[in-house]
Amino acid sequence: MLLRGVSVAHEDSWRAVDDGEDLPAGKVTVTLRRFLAEREQLAARAGEVGVHIDPGEDLALAAGHAAAISTAALVSVIFPAFTDGRGFSVIRSLRRRGYRGEIRAIGKLLPDQFDFLRRCGADSVEIADGDDVQTWLREARALSLAYQSGYAQTTARNILEARAQANRATLRATAITTPAKT
């Protein structure tokens, strides 16, 4: 099942295609290797080509081909295990290098990681079939605040901004209650 934002998304039509398999019509995702090797042919399907990044294999490759990757309409970042947090840095690095397309987290993930994924820059998450959607949606909002700046804004509010705003409000309140001296 696919979650986009903090809600259930209608399944979209992206199809993962193995290396060597013929490309069907419609939206396809391919491995990073294939994406780079067949760049020219794939260019004709603009907007309908996505790429998988498997942090276990593709890190060096991905770092060297940021410009090519930026043309993909979708980047699927694979999490081989929920304890393998490389994907968080992969997603974050994609965003920092200016990637604007959709980023999807796929693989073994925990509901508790939902908001972290979104803050790093993921738009959508594919969750396992047996997972309880309600748990995922609830956990995404379990913490309403976050300390880190510079990460994507989600339902968690940035504490530094909240503080600054609260300070301004206090200042305004004091300004109203204390008559200006002349």
């Binding site: 929920f82 304890t83 393998d84 947090g85 968080f88 840095s89 974050r92 990681q113 908001d115 972290f116 994924l117 803050r119 790093c120 913490l143 976050a146 300390y147 880190q148 990460y151 504490i159």
Partner: peptide
Amino acid sequence: RQWSTFHPEFTFL
């Protein structure tokens, strides 16, 4: 302490 608390990127090192 604040920066590292529930860090979105560095909690599954």
